[in-house]
Amino acid sequence: MERIVLTTTQKALKINLNENIYGTFAEIGAGQEVVRHFFRAGGASGTVAKTMSAYDKDFSDAIYGKEIDGRYVTEQRLRKMLEHEYGLIEQRLSRDKFPNKCYFAFANTIATINFTKKFKGHGWMGLRFQLDPDDEPNDVIFHIRMKEEEAYLQQETIGIMGVNLIYGCFHIRNNPEELLRSLYDNIAKYKIEIDMIHFE
């Protein structure tokens, strides 16, 4: 049976209306483009526990630690973000209060196209998520290369892909190949390329 492709707003709203999905968003480098879809869709208070951006490098280092190579748009940085943010959920949200919640932490670290347009931009995006409140979390992490010529267009595409990731992990989780295809829902493939992905 062919999968019905929902709009980005429909996907965000479906997540928001699921009372058992709850988590945080940490987005660095391209604005809070993913979480804004959840706020705009309505009902986000049942889904979003926290959202943040640490643009200043000193702030980012204070939260996630310094990288040995001094780089910020790396797989290692993304993994630190997921580890830190998911750990805070477990520390701060009582299972007695939220016995049926499946927790998640979404993160991305992005460098969009520069002013001279000599650097097209790339980034890392990932989700740590539970499929059952009693289960250990799963990770999906991938690297993207952006091909659009304007930063605001890249930001919009990143926002859509982030929603696709969260929706796919909770609704297409049993079919990794279809989940991978779904990351491009509502996105023309010439706009962005996923060149590496990990399912863990």
Rank of each mutant, 00 (worst) to 15 (best):
F104H: 12
K57Q: 15
S60Q: 06
Y103M: 12
S94W: 06
D61W: 08
M125G: 08
R173K: 14
G65K: 05
K97M: 11
A49W: 13
H143T: 07
G168I: 09
H171T: 13
G121R: 01
N175F: 02
A107G: 13
Q155G: 12
V163Y: 10
G87E: 02
V48Q: 11
T47E: 10
R79I: 04
K57S: 12
P137V: 07
A105M: 08
A107L: 01
G70I: 06
I158D: 07
A111P: 03
T112G: 08
G168L: 01
E150Y: 10
L78F: 04
Y152V: 12
Q91W: 04
E83M: 03
M161H: 02
E75N: 06
S182T: 08
K147V: 01
A49N: 13
L153Q: 11
K147S: 13
F115N: 12
I144H: 04
V48D: 03
M146G: 05
V163L: 08
M52D: 14
D135G: 03
I166S: 09
K117I: 06
A107I: 07
I144N: 01
R173L: 11
W124H: 14
R95T: 06
A49D: 14
R181T: 00
R95L: 14
A151G: 00
I160K: 10
K101Y: 07
P133N: 07
R71L: 13
K120Q: 14
G162F: 06
R173F: 10
T51P: 08
K147Q: 08
F98M: 10
N138R: 15
G162Q: 05
M125S: 05
L153N: 08
T157R: 03
F98A: 14
N108T: 12
L78E: 01
D132P: 02
T51Y: 15
N108D: 14
Y64R: 02
D69R: 02
L93I: 14
D134W: 07
R128A: 11
G162K: 11
Y64Q: 12
L153P: 00
K118M: 14
R181M: 05
S60W: 02
R92N: 12
D61Y: 10
E90P: 02
P176A: 03
I63P: 01
H84M: 04
Y86R: 00
I68H: 06
Q130Y: 04
F115L: 15
R173M: 10
D139F: 11
L165H: 02
K101W: 00
H122M: 15
F106V: 03
I63Y: 09
I166C: 06
L88M: 10
H171S: 11
F119K: 09
G123V: 11
Q154P: 00
I63D: 05
E75Q: 14
E149H: 08
Q91H: 09
F142C: 01
S45G: 15
R79H: 06
